[in-house]
Amino acid sequence: MSILVNKDTKLVVQGITGREGQFHTLRNKAYGTNVVAGVTPGKAGQDVEGIPVFNTVRDAVEATGANTSMIFVPPRFATDAIFESLDAGIDLTIAITEGIPAHDMMRVYTHLKRGNQTLIGPNCPGIISPGEATVGIMPTDVFTPGRVGIISRSGTLTYQISKEIGDLGIGQSSVVGIGGDAIVGSSFIDILQRFEDDPGTDLVVMVGEIGGDDEERAGVFISENMKTPVVGYIAGFQAPPGKQMGHAGAIITGSSGTAQGKKDALEAMGVEVGTNPTEVAEMVKKRIG
């Protein structure tokens, strides 16, 4: 079992003819994802190794029944691409693009929350449900089918932790990169709820980092709403205040958003938090191994 991305996924790729878009689309397809269409304005009628290209997402949906979109469009056009996907009625939009301005995302988020569609990212590595499908840029070799769900604000850390868990013989149900920006379409809580509802997930690993209060809120949600156990990890204990640590969202503002504050808040809610990826893997093993 899995969440969000699976055998029923019908993927349309916005920005399919770009270098990165094409490279990752073909990798996703090779893994088994059902890629039904691509969109690049002005290139309707072309194809990318057999995947038909359309001018607009609406055209792609009408012709192929696409229900999921992956966005590979550069930052200055990505906001428009997200709105286009939402307006075409796509259920799940996954925005890989890094560098979308925060003001654009405030508008996107406000619009999004008035409906029932789902946005993952931006600035995220995508989603993989091992053995079923992958949408995004994750290195698929790192993952094996299993019963641990992973949610993360960081790509490489997700791979690291997944591999360490894998080395202990434990696989994943789904792995969701929610993105490293200050505003992302889906929070930890949104994805925790999906894993809680998934009979194929026995434990969730939540990989957080400095900035914002999403981890703190997730702690309260876990203690009040979840039966599925959660193991946490937080990166950025050494980060100084006021400095952006790579991700646009990884910044301590004043005294809020520190790694210690997040760790304390999660532990106060009964969530175990590892001090490094290896320890997190050991905690998972101890719980369900």
Partner: peptide, 9 residues
């Protein structure tokens, strides 16, 4: 970014 933050820690 994540793995570098983790490395510092």
């Amino acid at each position: 970014a994540g793995i570098v933050m983790s490395s510092l820690d």
